[in-house]
Amino acid sequence: MSIRFEKVSKSFGPPEARKTILKDVSFEVAEGEILFILGKSGMGKSVTLKHIVGVMKPDSGRVFVDGKNVADLDADGLSEMRRSCGMVFQHPALLDSLSVYDNVSFGLRTPQFNRGRPRPLSEAEIRQVVREKISLVHLKDEILDLSPPEISYGMQKRVSMARTLAPEPKFLLFDEPTTGLDPITTTAVNDQIQELSRKLKVTSVVVSHDMGCALSIADRILVLDQAKILFLGTPKEAIASKETLIQEFLEETLANQSKPGGSR
C-alpha cells in the first residue's frame, strides 16, 4: 500500500511563460507512514497530492499508487483508486444541499464502494458507520440533521474528515487541513490526523505549512523548493539540517510556540 513518484515533472502556463512546478521529483511513501510535505506557497505541494488522485497527470515521469501507474488506469480503475484514497481538502468541501448525515454517507452509496460486496449497505448499516466516524472526529450525533452552513467552520472540517474516513480508505491525503482554523482547533485537527493514521493504520500524506505539527507527528518530512526536493528525512534530521529554508521554518515554529495560544 505505498505511493511512489518516479521522476515526475509538471509545468503550467503558455509555452512563452511556462512555469515548472515539479522537476524530476522522486520519492516513496511506505505503508502506514505519515509523510508531511512542506514548502512555500506555489511550490507544488497541492499539485503533488492531485497527481496521487489522478486529478492531474504528469508531463513526464510516473506516479504509482498501490503498485499501479495512475496514468494507465481507465475510468473505472481511476474511480476505484480514488475511492481507496481519502482526500481531505483545504476547504471542508461539503455539499451544501445535503445534510451532515448525507455528506458523511455520500461515499457509502457510490457504485465503486458497493462493487465486490454481496449487497449494498442497508440504511441501518450506513447510519451505524456514520455515527462511528462522527464520534471518531469528536463530534456529536445532534449535528447529523443540520446542513453544513449551520455548523462552525472547524466542525465542517471535522465532518469533512468523517466523510473521507467513512468508505475506509487505504490512503489519507490532507491538503492543508488546518488552514483558516484557530490555534485550538488546529491542535485538535493535528491530533486527529495522528490518531486516525495510527488507529486505522493507513498511509498518510499531509500537505502543510505547519513545521511544528510535522515535527511532532510526521514519520518523515519532505520539503519542496524551486520544483525540486530540498529535503527528505525524519523530523530529527530536519532539526539538524543546515538548509536555510528549513531553518526559516524552524525559527517560525519557535516564534509561534512562544506566542500565547500558539501551535505546538
Binding site: V55, G86, M87, A93, L94, D96, F106, T110
Partner: peptide, 17 residues
C-alpha cells in the same frame, strides 16, 4: 461555487462521476 470550494473535486475523489 462548488468548483472553487473543491466540492466537485471531493465528489470525484469519493468515486462519483
Amino acid at each position: 461555487t462548488m468548483r472553487v470550494t473543491e466540492q466537485i473535486d471531493a465528489i470525484e475523489c469519493l468515486g462519483t462521476n
